[in-house]
Amino acid sequence: MIHHLKTPLAEADLQALRPGDEVLLSGIIYTARDAAHQRILTLIEEGGDLPFELSGQVIYYMGPSPTPAGAVIGACGPTTAYRMDEMTVPLLQRGLKGTIGKGKRSEKIAEAMKTYQSVYLIAVGGIGALYSQVVTSSEVIAFEDLGAEAVRKLRVKDFPLYVGIDCRGRDLYE
């Protein structure tokens, strides 16, 4: 089963997804990994402005290699998702509808996907060169000092993914 999804995502878009289904995702997505998550959580705690509105959006756990002249982005495959598990729920509470990474996540996250109607999508690790071909634009929008860990706004076209955890909390790896 292949689903074509376009961001921003609505809860209705997620209902047909099942663990293991293939997804081709298009539209704007945002990157954030360990360090950016820590900063976003601090901003939430302090009531500051977030680098982007979370509602309906998708975060890709990814820090690319540098962009050579003339390219859109360098290698850009997923990083392991579990490291963000303890920092994800506050983002889901603010309407985040999808996360993209690799690997297994905690039970708490599966439960939260159900509670907040969100999905975890899996990208294949270690094929970052191939994924650079689905990114049509890339721009750093926050935390530039973090280098590879800065928050980027990416536009992707038909980014191939698998459903890892669906919005009923069912986990492909369980």
Binding site: G63, G74, A75, G126, I127, G128, A129, L130
Partner: peptide, 21 residues
């Protein structure tokens, strides 16, 4: 198959195999 495709593309276009170098 995609691991092998990735390798071919990385070598041809000089894109790192993986962003985690």
């Amino acid at each position: 198959e995609r691991l092998l495709e990735n390798n071919a593309l990385a070598t041809e276009k000089r894109i790192p195999l993986c962003q985690d170098t």
